[in-house]
Nucleic acid binder design. Structure first.
Lengths: 341, 341
DNA sequence: GGCAGGGATGTAATCGATTCCACGAGTCCA
DNA sequence: TGGACTCGTGGAATCGATTACATCCCTGCC
């Protein structure tokens, strides 16, 4: 493969001049510039990004460590992150932590070794020493969706409290009084926040959230199934199950169906995180939709701000309720926003 | 950040010795090794992968360029690719081509500039000059799922012909005679192959595939919707619509539902590419399932074989039919394999 | 006419590792 | 005893770029 020296030789100039042409440095004669460009063209020369990175200490690469690539929410997040990064001249390396802290650490270490310019993380747990050290050592870093309290790192996330309140109001209006939740891992902020928001919203209607109605899940479908079975085994099962993410909702749907019960007639179902498939399930699932694409873009902008010396800002965007049929109401016009497709 | 020189100084040895310890070179005294390891530990030293890559001309990175990250099939493929690559000591950079040739080229160029060790591609089109040049220039490369004929590159893919024949037999047995297909782009191998397999299977039953029943899609949901609307507008609409991928099936489902029609009573539906969500749609969708995870792993193994000097083999694995309710049959035991979950 | 200033260019140091080669010391065997 | 060999080690070249610095030449102004 042709290197910068070959180009210099072919153009009859020094490597310094070639480099200047390549980087748009003003101080090059039009004549030399033309000769270099011609040589680049004929040799099919492409600069070696590895060498360039070593010298400039910039890789123009961002790391993104997410909890579960198979979760459509994170897939969409990853997609929007890549798009925005590309628009700003960066590439993205994605690490899938699969909700496993040690895998998360593996990816963080690997990305750091590769000297990425900045790190976007949706932490699986409360934060490993490795990640905290990196943040403290000054690695540009931004949390998306989930975050770790007490660390000086900007956070880009959605606030679901308003939407959860809307959801509970909607359920209350439909006559439901026994509401249960499948929570996410308490170690994640999204795991605990959603339970708290739910509990607070229930309290507004004078409803309790008994322990028996608080199931512990792990954001994966299987745990949703397991917890739901537990609910159904209760002497007095809940009338509604609210899953703190989409995969657990899927597991819940399975569990209900496996008993020969029907949604919403026998039990209602709602989920946090809307995804395109919820329109097509039987029945369509009422869900809380995050502005996922906007979150990804905002996170990249914050990270690049940090990298390029500007001051990054934390961003919180509102989530919104999307009413479908899984809680019993026909999706007729109502004060609450309806599904649009 | 500490460099190898710092470690050498702290351990009282030369950088050469540090490097030898780091790379497990045998010719180092136990004593020196211990001192180096201690210094590495206390300094928290991590080798700079960029510098290492420059020197060794290996990045231990694979590029994966896929057509659409939002398609669950490719998401799962990407996941299995990353897993297998990690197991073999490689990282993966994913490029999302979004079915756009120019974006595909952008990613290929970017990955080549970064000097990835090998490239895994599921080509969006018939192959750009850039990609063909790279293959010819000796860049280790493997095609997954889709491929480009006439290029000396191993291919890892699923053969759907048997499963399509099973599907058509299944439909025939249910009494369906007017079968239509939503095809993928003719420029992709999967686009044209699936139509051919379908046509051949129909022929075995003496059934034609009229032009009016061959709709042109682009593997995205919207095109499935559009083509299906066309089918429904025909004087004699088909009894079955077979979508050549999952997203177009989703679009078809939408179109049918928008007309107030029901699947499978008014029209039957089947899809190529099974995904977890098809179990939960209304009705559950009969689909042809590829061994996606195995494809991803086989592709990585082939690519790494090529990179490490062994001879890579092309791999073709069979797809299989998964019968659910969208074609009208109750999923009772039958010679054809049933859905398992 | 001489000198300051600025533009175009080349030489060489540099980034952080790996690795070839040389060298000294120790071992073995003739 | 000495040559051949091995082992542990360090010095220095190298990978392919960027860039500080020096140099040269031209222009403009006093």
């Amino acid at each position: 493969m042709a290197g910068i020296k070959d180009v210099a030789a072919a153009a009859g100039v020094s490597v310094a001049t070639v480099s200047r042409v390549l980087n748009g440095h003003p101080s090059v004669s039009a004549e030399a510039r033309a000769r270099v460009n011609r040589a680049v063209e004929t040799l099919g020369y492409r600069p070696n990004a590895v060498a360039r990175s070593l010298r400039t200490d910039q890789t123009h690469t961002l790391g993104l460590v997410i909890s579960d690539v198979l979760n459509p929410y994170f897939t969409e997040l990853a997609r929007s992150v890549e798009e925005e990064a590309r628009a700003l001249g960066y590439s993205v390396i994605i690490g899938n932590a699969d909700e496993r802290p040690e895998l998360q650490d593996h990816h963080v270490r690997n990305l750091l070794d590769r000297r990425i310019d900045g790190l976007l993380v949706s932490p699986t747990d409360g934060g490993s020493p490795l990640m905290l050290d990196a943040a403290r050592a000054g690695t540009p870093m931004v949390f998306v969706d989930r975050w770790i309290p007490g660390v000086e790192v900007p956070v880009v996330r959605a606030d679901g409290r308003g939407a959860v309140r809307d959801l509970v109001a909607h359920l209350y209006r439909l006559g439901h009084r026994r509401l249960a939740i499948i929570a996410g891992p308490a170690a994640t902020t999204t795991g605990s926040e959603r339970v708290e928001a739910f509990r607070a919203a229930l309290a507004e209607h004078g409803l309790p959230l008994p322990d028996a109605y608080t199931g512990q899940g792990d954001f994966q479908a299987e745990s949703g199934r397991r917890v739901t079975e537990g609910f159904l085994d209760l002497a007095e099962p809940p009338e509604v199950v609210f899953a703190a993410d989409n995969l657990m909702a899927l597991g819940a749907l399975d569990a209900v169906r496996a008993r020969g019960l029907r949604v919403p007639d026998d039990i209602a179902l709602a989920a946090f995180d809307d995804i395109p498939w919820f329109v097509h399930t039987d029945p369509p699932v009422t869900a809380i939709a995050q502005p996922t694409g906007e979150l990804g873009r905002a996170a990249v902008r914050a990270l690049v701000d940090r990298i390029e010396g500007r001051t990054p800002r934390s961003v919180t965007l509102p989530a919104r309720l999307v009413v479908r049929r899984s809680c019993g109401a026909p999706p007729t016009p109502s004060p609450v926003q309806r599904s649009t497709s």
